[in-house]
Amino acid sequence: MAEVKRELSVPPDVEANGGTEILRLFISGGAMSLSMQRAFAEPEAWGRLLAELAQQASAIFERETAMSAADAIAEIRIALDAALDHIESGLRPKN
């Protein structure tokens, strides 16, 4: 049986002022499924976006679990660094 699709609400400022959706991410069957579009002129803006996501995720962990936001950020950083190292190793030219 298929899972029910659950979507988040549009943020109030976007409801009031409009905006462009740049990322849609779902967990389906235990895996991430996403669609996205380039929204920034420079790639470093994506770094700032990832940092904002980490900050908001750490706040959720602090609010909903016994973990502090600082501990959550530390764990997120370790996992992000490892994942980026893995990705980067696949992008290096083979000699």
Rank of each mutant, 00 (worst) to 15 (best):
L34C: 04
L34H: 02
L34S: 03
S35A: 15
M36P: 00
M36V: 03
R38S: 13
R38T: 13
A39P: 01
F40I: 12
F40H: 14
E42D: 15
P43W: 04
P43N: 03
P43Y: 02
E44W: 09
E44I: 07
W46Q: 07
G47A: 14
G47K: 13
R48N: 07
L49D: 01
L50V: 09
L50K: 00
A51E: 10
A51I: 07
E52M: 13
L53H: 00
L53S: 02
A54Y: 02
A54C: 08
A54D: 04
A54F: 03
Q56T: 13
Q56C: 07
A57P: 00
I60A: 05
I60L: 09
F61Q: 07
E62H: 09
T65Y: 05
T65N: 06
M67C: 05
M67R: 06
S68Y: 07
A69D: 03
A69W: 03
A69F: 01
A70C: 02
A70R: 10
D71M: 04
A74H: 14
A74L: 14
E75K: 07
I76T: 03
R77G: 01
R77V: 08
I78T: 12
A79G: 12
L80A: 15
L80T: 14
A82K: 14
A83R: 13
A83C: 05
A83V: 06
L84Q: 10
D85R: 14
H86R: 12
H86C: 08
I87L: 11
E88R: 11
E88H: 10
S89C: 02
S89E: 13
G90V: 05
L91H: 07
